[in-house]
């Protein structure tokens, strides 16, 4: 445990001195918090302006908001899209941290002396993965907490109930960390093939694409995100995590790093 802790603290001490990483960890969550809150504030008094505000929701919404008016349902639908965006944080932040950490070590040639120590590969990968996942998950949860707390003052109780529905709590608190693990595994594999942290970061962020597709799907009405979708997402991401981490650990072997990494 001591070695894992040492690796985590070392990673944080190094990586958070990098402005790009610091920006990603500190400002990205702020942007993700601000966007829905600004939208909520802007649409807060529009209920009266919409002619069909009190009419039942369009059939497009399906089972999304039973017993809600069209105006309230539109708000729930909009908040769902924003909440889904929060799921991008645990992908983007660890991809950035892990890319800078691994490619940084590669370019500084600090991996060989590190691998010469009696640290096991399991300890090293766990330390590096946790160093990327912990800040990402913490930033996501904190940002989500702030967003929910602020929204509580801005929406009705009925809409708020949708915001903290088990579906979103599952998404943020369970699927989020699973996504972060997936991003780290991708970053490890990609970092072994490239020598520029920015390229590694951008390639690792490809993991975010399925989420973007979900977001677009929800926006254009192709798919309606509900509990079932989130659960399936959790199962698929967990399965991918197992496979990707297996491959990442295979790539992260002493001999492979020293003789095959570019």
């Amino acid at each position: 445990m001591e070695k894992i802790k040492t690796i985590i603290l070392k990673e944080w001490a190094e990586v958070f001195k990098n402005k790009m990483v610091l920006f990603t960890v500190a400002f990205l969550p702020l942007i993700f918090i601000a966007m829905p809150l600004v939208t909520l504030a802007a649409t807060a008094n529009m209920g009266g302006e919409i002619s069909s505000a009190d009419s039942p929701p369009d059939e497009f919404f399906g089972d999304l908001c039973v017993d809600l008016s069209e105006y309230d349902c539109t708000q729930v639908y909009m908040l769902n899209i924003y909440t889904l965006m929060f799921m991008m944080l645990p992908v983007i932040i660890p991809a950035s941290i892990a890319s800078y950490s691994i490619v940084g070590e590669k370019t500084a040639r600090s991996l060989e002396p590190l691998l010469a120590t009696p640290i096991t590969i399991a300890e090293l990968v766990t330390g590096k993965a946790l160093a990327a996942i912990i800040p990402a998950v913490a930033a996501t949860w904190l940002a989500f907490g702030i967003y929910v707390a602020a929204a509580w003052f801005m929406v009705t109780e009925r809409i708020f109930a949708y915001l903290v529905a088990p579906m979103w709590l599952t998404a943020v608190f369970i699927v989020g960390p699973l996504l972060a693990l997936m991003a780290v595994a991708a970053a490890i594999m990609i970092s072994s093939r490239v020598s520029d942290p920015r390229v590694a970061e951008q390639l690792s962020a490809i993991v975010v694409l399925p989420l973007v597709m979900l977001l677009i799907g929800q926006s254009v009405g192709f798919i309606l995100i509900d509990q079932r979708v989130i659960l399936w997402m959790g199962v698929i991401v967990a399965a991918l995590d197992v496979g990707l981490m297996y491959l990442a650990v295979k790539v992260f072997q002493r001999e492979t790093i020293l003789t095959r990494w570019k």
Binding site: K10, A13, E14, A108, S110, L111, E112, P113, L114, A116
Partner: peptide, 13 residues
């Protein structure tokens, strides 16, 4: 103990 060809220190630390 091994002294590798390049020092490989953590420059920011």
């Amino acid at each position: 103990g091994i002294l590798t060809e390049t020092p490989g220190m953590y420059d920011r630390l």
